[in-house]
């Protein structure tokens, strides 16, 4: 079982607005799933085994410019467009 605060912390990080009903549901469901995956804790793994799954196919792109022709198709999906920009309520802070 997950605490309400923990669910709210994660929901905030994930930018998910949850109803109180949903919070309760995820307290239970997330708790159960994490209980289940505890089985991995018991596994004895050698120190320093790979963190990343390596894959071999290295493919670079040549440095050539090729304009995408359907930019209107991209802008056409914008929920709000102003002066050609994706429009949102004013933001002050910055990363």
């Amino acid at each position: 079982m997950f605490s309400r605060e923990e669910i709210l912390r994660v929901a905030k990080l994930a930018r998910l607005d949850l109803s109180s009903h949903e919070v309760e549901r995820y307290q239970k469901q997330l708790g159960r799933v994490l209980e289940y995956v505890k089985e991995l804790e018991a596994l004895d793994l050698e120190e320093g085994s790979v963190k990343h799954v390596p894959r071999d196919a290295v493919a670079f792109r040549g440095d050539t410019v090729m304009a995408f022709l359907n930019t209107q198709g991209i802008l056409g999906n914008a929920p709000s467009l102003h002066d050609g920009g994706f429009s949102i309520p004013t933001v002050v802070e910055h990363e």
Binding site: D83, G84, G85, F86, I88, T90, V91, E95
Partner: peptide, 16 residues
């Protein structure tokens, strides 16, 4: 790099 946010009188416009 990220895009750029332009802060105008009606809100913020994002240029990618």
């Amino acid at each position: 790099d990220a895009g750029k946010s332009i802060h105008g009188p009606y809100g913020t416009e994002v240029n990618l």
